[in-house]
């Protein structure tokens, strides 16, 4: 029986201490190969896990299954003792899509406050909008509209909105892919700050090895339809610029790249050093 983690905010339907995905299979009509082919994954609570892999390997499909947006053909998904839909019903899931997906007619403040206004019957409190905006450096833009903001600022609003409910699980689908490198690095630091303050479990899809290493506790390298290898990122936290650009980070990044090449070539993964998944 899953054990509840003491000291965590009580969320209805949240009692387990990990995400467990077993034998997940998903095929799309008209596609000759499955998006997910018997995928197994474990993510302990409050970890920051990045999914990285070649295009079309099923990263986004896995994220959509975790978000309850797509139903798997086979397999089980256990999110801290709940199913994806139950966790969404309890408003314990935050989603940051690739595009910020803001409401263009609403101010920044109203966009960030949106999760609190929707599905009130879930009875879930929200963080103070002002604090969140302060956290992402947008306190001055609270009354602005999305069309008045840059791409990086819009994505920061989307991140603040996702954190508004203090979600148990935060799913991020390449949120920084459309941003320039400077903005991307700045947003990575802000994301880490918010995550460390709130101890949310994050599953982060990215194509950037540097980004995955800089942010994560574990990098999950995916081959088409399955997990190819998990790479632990043993860098100290909080991570400053020197930690994520130092020799240790470079070594981990090289390891991830080597596994990515293997996954790309369809090569077999070497035996895992640890028996578990994304620890």
């Amino acid at each position: 029986m899953p054990t509840s983690v003491p000291g965590t905010p009580g969320h209805r339907g949240v009692s387990g201490d990990r995400i467990e995905v077993r034998a997940l299979t998903k095929s799309y009509p008209g596609s000759d190969r499955p998006a997910l082919a018997g995928l197994d994954l474990e993510v302990p609570r409050r970890r920051f896990v990045s999914l990285i892999g070649p295009s079309g390997c099923g990263k986004s499909t896995l994220l959509r299954v975790l978000a309850g947006l797509t139903s798997p053909d086979e397999g089980t998904v256990d999110l801290f003792g709940s199913g994806p839909r139950a966790l969404c019903r309890a408003k314990a899931v935050g989603l940051v899509p690739q595009t910020p997906a803001l409401l263009p007619w609403a101010t920044v403040r109203r966009n960030v406050a949106l999760p609190g206004r929707v599905n009130r019957r879930a009875g879930r409190g929200t963080d103070t909008v002002d604090e969140l905006l302060e956290g992402v450096g947008l306190a001055h833009a609270a009354r602005s509209y999305p069309h008045q903001l840059s791409g990086g600022m819009r994505q920061r609003v989307a991140i603040a909105r996702a954190f508004a409910l203090r979600p148990e699980l935060l799913l991020m689908d390449e949120p920084f892919s459309a941003l320039d490198e400077f903005t991307r690095e700045s947003l990575q630091l802000q994301l880490l700050d918010l995550w460390q303050q709130r101890s949310t479990t994050v599953v982060f899809v990215t194509h950037s090895v540097q980004e995955a290493v800089a942010l994560s506790d574990t990098v999950v390298v995916m081959a088409p339809g399955k997990v190819h290898r998990t790479v632990p990122v043993d860098l100290p936290r909080p991570r400053g610029t020197s930690a994520v650009t130092g020799p240790d980070a470079r070594t981990i990044a090289d390891t991830v790249r080597a596994h990515l090449r293997q996954a790309w070539d369809g090569g077999a993964a070497e035996p895992e050093p640890e028996p578990t998944g994304a620890r």
Binding site: R64, G68, C88, G94, A101, L102, L114, V118, N119
Partner: peptide, 21 residues
């Protein structure tokens, strides 16, 4: 846009909420 609907679905918004908001 699909991503906006995805955000509302993860919040378990009702159809009426999606319609109005």
């Amino acid at each position: 846009p699909g991503p906006v609907l995805d955000v509302f679905r993860t919040l378990h918004a009702s159809r009426l909420e999606v319609l109005l908001r």
